[in-house]
Simulated scan of single mutants.
Amino acid sequence: MTTLRLADPGEAADLASFLSRLLRYDRAAAVRLQAAPAAAAEGGVLAVFGRLPLGGSGVVAVRTARLGEQRTTPLDATVSAGQLLEALDEQAAALGVPPMVTGPAWTGMLPPRSGWRPLGALPGAPVVAAVAGAVAEFRTRSEAMPVEDRTRAVLDALADEIWSRPVDTAARLPLRAVHAAQVLGFLRPGAELSVFQAGGWLRLSCPHGSVALRRTAAPGSGLGLTPLS
């Protein structure tokens, strides 16, 4: 098993938190790992891509971790998120790379690495408040329904209606992206967020990670996850 040395235990703890949150929503989640050879002596960066099941196009999350050693060969592997978490030693800041798995379709269609242009900045506090308001609205409207009408299809349609709304009219970033960033622990109250676009992709960049989704996804495609606090 290939072992990666992370820069410090803090990097390992942050990565463990990301994987744990991802597995909360998809126990069979796979992640794609990418690390390029580092030109600098201090080491390189490991990028971990995961997908939250938030509709037909989904939301791709990106968490990076600083490596504590210089790589001479590139790494590009799709592995089980659960096995990766089990192979992570936080105290030793070491990450074992488990055997590769046959990746789901999304792992072959990652957000572009370059070509991103800024669309604007979003203040963190109002964004967090918007997510809280959306959660409250979902609960209020769903609880007002007769019990016999609260089918999965009806609840998913309601959630899709709410989370497809733009949190920012200029960037047209849907609340779905902000919700994904929140449940993965990327949002911090008071932190400024940045929105970027590259082709049909939108990216929300947060201090602790980023999420990307296809802007061209049609509303009503089905939200596979109902709002949670």
Rank of each mutant, 00 (worst) to 15 (best):
G190N: 02
P53C: 06
A13W: 00
V183H: 09
T107C: 15
R150T: 10
A144E: 15
M109T: 14
P99H: 12
E148W: 06
L4V: 06
G185W: 04
V167I: 13
A217T: 13
T151F: 08
L223H: 11
T78N: 08
G220R: 11
P227K: 02
A92I: 11
G199N: 10
T102G: 11
P104L: 09
Q34L: 13
A77F: 10
Q70S: 14
R24W: 06
A105W: 11
G133R: 01
L54D: 11
A39Y: 00
P74M: 06
F138K: 03
S210A: 11
L67V: 02
E42P: 01
R152T: 15
R203G: 05
P166D: 04
G82L: 04
A136C: 00
A39P: 00
L110D: 07
E42G: 04
V45W: 01
P111D: 02
R113D: 06
A181G: 11
L75S: 05
Q182V: 02
A198I: 04
L119Q: 11
G10N: 05
P189C: 02
Q197H: 07
L84V: 15
A180E: 08
D156M: 07
E148C: 07
V167M: 14
R215A: 15
R21T: 07
P227Q: 03
G103F: 09
L85H: 14
A13G: 00
V60H: 07
L46H: 09
A170N: 10
V195D: 05
L23M: 05
I162M: 02
L4Y: 05
A177D: 05
A171Y: 04
A132N: 09
A129I: 04
L193I: 02
S17L: 09
D160C: 08
A180S: 07
A28Y: 06
Q83W: 12
L155M: 01
L119R: 08
M109G: 03
L33I: 06
R176P: 11
L4N: 11
T73M: 13
W201F: 10
P104S: 08
L173F: 07
A30L: 12
T78Q: 13
L33C: 12
L158M: 15
G68N: 13
L52G: 06
L33S: 06
A171E: 08
Q91Y: 09
L6I: 05
T140Y: 02
